[in-house]
Design a protein around this nucleic acid. Sequence first.
DNA 1: GCGGTGACGGTCG
DNA 2: CCGACCGCCACCG
Length: 117
Amino acid sequence: MDNDIRLDATYTSRIYAVVRQIPYGKVASYGQIARIVGGGVQARQVGYVLAGLKTGSDVPWQRVINSKGQISLPGVGGAMQKQLLIDEGILFDEKDRVNMNLFGWEGPGEPVQPGLY
DNA sequence: GCGGTGACGGTCG
DNA sequence: CCGACCGCCACCG
């Protein structure tokens, strides 16, 4: 039997599930999503899966950006993504970067505050 | 079957 | 801080 759960709709659904968990007004990186999904899924796969989404999807794809805090989607799609995030209250600096330390999603677990002790 | 590509990310200079 | 490189892996011609 096959325990290869990497290449199937299985991991695609998982990616959707994780992205849906990103709260309003927060962002996560592709690598972070990949890490949460696990199963050997890489950041590039996350990007590819999100690219397959169509308009009207219930998946908040706009909340996924790269680890630099910048939008990776080129072209008009990227401009739309930026606008959607601004609409959620997320701020961009002069270089179109988001402060991950401020708007970054901590993950599905309990939020941990750094510098607590 | 092979080589190029991409909504990435870590490392190096 | 920033650009250049390289590794990664599914998809496409």
